[in-house]
């Protein structure tokens, strides 16, 4: 960030860069989990800054459910080219083909839960000892107590009762063979901070974040996009609406919001006035109040 901007975004940027450098120094084979959503776009952006003028010293890893919006993949490939970094892709389809997981069936099927296995397999294949993620503590209650350096046992599990104390800016990344860490450099950012930073830095964004017309249907009170991977159940109906996405993930469970926000500024205004959390639009979170906590314990990022 320019030296004359010394506000909260600058403080957050410095903190995140510090954490990213600690990862590069303390771990042998870190990877950056890249979903194509705004949070991981920002983390990758920060990683480029942290090691400048050298390239990012670790690869990006995309866990691809195969259920993507086409825009996500084309944006991903362009962005990776812009940053000049190394991208690896792990396919959920491969996990299915190898019999590692069994695909849910029926119209409500989602590949979201299967990702965990593909992720753990992907990390093992890369011999990764640290996986950098774009999770933020403001996203969800269970995350409010997550550490920047979050220890995972050999099964990739998180033990919320037994986290290491984290003081000052001292990060303990010591582990035994086979264990690994999840690292969250933007823990202290809020959704608003992310958008303000994107505006200030002029970071490119996938078009899905901006208002566009698309065929959607309503399920559990959430607008889902029409895709090839989902079929409608009784009572559901396709409509053309002007929408945008507040998070980008698996196309089968990421809800769109009705919105006409077509610039970053519009989005910032909309975020300031928003009445729902961004995860409020994720149908997988709605399954139970403690849904996120259960998934995290199992290794979801």
């Amino acid at each position: 960030m320019k030296a004359d901007v010394r506000g909260h975004l600058y403080a957050l940027e410095n903190e995140s860069i510090h954490v990213l450098r600690e990862v590069a120094a303390q771990f042998e084979r870190p990877v950056l989990l890249f979903s194509g959503g705004k949070d991981s776009i920002v983390v990758a952006w920060l990683a480029r800054k942290a090691f400048h003028p050298a390239p990012i010293p670790f690869p990006l890893l995309h866990i691809d459910t195969g259920h993507n919006f086409a825009e996500t993949i084309s944006f991903r490939d362009e962005y990776v080219k812009l940053l000049g970094c190394d991208l690896r892709v792990a396919l959920v389809q491969d996990s299915i083909d190898q019999g590692r997981v069994v695909e849910e069936t029926g119209p409500l099927a989602s590949r979201n839960a299967l990702q965990t296995v593909t992720l753990l397999d992907g990390l093992r294949d890369l011999k990764a000892d640290a996986a950098i993620g774009g999770a933020r503590r403001d996203e969800e209650k269970a995350r409010a107590k997550e550490r920047m350096f979050s220890h995972r046992d050999r099964f990739g599990q998180w033990d919320p009762k037994n986290q290491r104390p984290e003081l000052w800016s001292l990060y303990n990344g010591r582990k035994i063979q086979g264990e690994h860490f999840r690292v969250f450099p933007i823990s202290n950012w809020t959704e608003m901070d992310i958008w303000q930073y994107i505006a200030l830095e002029e970071i490119p964004m996938p078009s899905l974040y901006f208002a566009h017309e698309r065929e959607v249907f309503v399920r559990d009170g959430i607008h889902l996009a029409k895709t090839d991977f989902m079929s409608l159940v009784e009572g559901e109906e396709l409509e053309r609406k002007v929408v945008r996405f507040r998070t980008i993930g698996d196309a089968t469970c990421t809800g769109a919001v009705l919105s006409t926000a077509s610039t970053i500024d519009d989005i910032i205004l909309e975020t300031a006035a928003a009445r729902l959390t961004e995860r409020g639009g994720r149908s997988d979170d709605k399954r139970s109040e403690a849904a996120m906590e259960d998934r995290k314990k199992a290794g979801y990022f």
Partner: peptide
Amino acid sequence: SANAYAGMD
């Protein structure tokens, strides 16, 4: 608006 929040600490 970028200027507006650049002044926040």
